[in-house]
Computed example of a mutant assay.
Amino acid sequence: MNEVELWRYIYDQVRRLKRVGWIRQDSVRRRRDQVFHVLKRPTDLNVSLVQHRFETASVEPQMDGGAIGQQMLEQSQLCPTRRLESLAKEIRLDMLTALGEAERYKQLFTEMPGLKARVEEDYLQARDRSSRLLGHLRAIENTLKTLVAA
């Protein structure tokens, strides 16, 4: 089972718990790190434990101390790489959103010049946000290059 399948399984279970009324989504909606509140178990709900839902990872043969140390070093280097790649995707999406927002404000200025005074501040904020996100993205991409080269 890979990470995507695990995420989908967990998400499906959360949806089921929400549908039966065992949990409630927090009133504040978040794109990430959504909070749910556990409620009392519904009395009409029958729960059964399902074991062996996922395949267990194959057991690797015994390794000597040097091989284990090398494997741990490789895993510790991969984890930050994955995290940075994920972060780069998120920032890229946010940056494209901010760029699209700034672009739309610019089009509105052209089409309806009377709006410029009202929404110019929003335009400037969107433009600044996209510039900051571009800087974040460059820093992460440079760090990824450094990690891969090492």
Results as ranks from 00 to 15, higher is better:
2 N>H: 07
6 L>K: 14
8 R>C: 11
10 I>F: 10
11 Y>I: 07
18 K>D: 06
18 K>G: 01
19 R>D: 04
20 V>I: 09
21 G>M: 06
21 G>W: 03
21 G>Y: 08
22 W>M: 08
29 R>E: 13
33 D>M: 09
38 V>K: 11
39 L>Q: 07
40 K>Q: 09
40 K>P: 02
40 K>M: 04
41 R>Q: 08
42 P>N: 08
42 P>T: 10
46 N>P: 00
47 V>Q: 07
47 V>L: 08
48 S>D: 03
49 L>Q: 14
50 V>P: 05
52 H>M: 03
64 D>L: 05
66 G>P: 00
66 G>M: 05
69 G>L: 15
76 S>I: 01
76 S>M: 07
78 L>D: 14
78 L>T: 05
79 C>K: 06
80 P>K: 07
92 R>G: 05
93 L>G: 05
95 M>K: 03
97 T>R: 04
98 A>I: 03
98 A>R: 01
100 G>P: 05
102 A>C: 06
103 E>V: 02
112 M>F: 12
114 G>V: 04
114 G>Q: 11
115 L>A: 06
115 L>C: 05
118 R>M: 04
127 R>F: 07
129 R>N: 04
131 S>F: 01
132 R>H: 05
136 H>R: 07
137 L>G: 01
139 A>T: 12
148 V>A: 11
149 A>S: 09
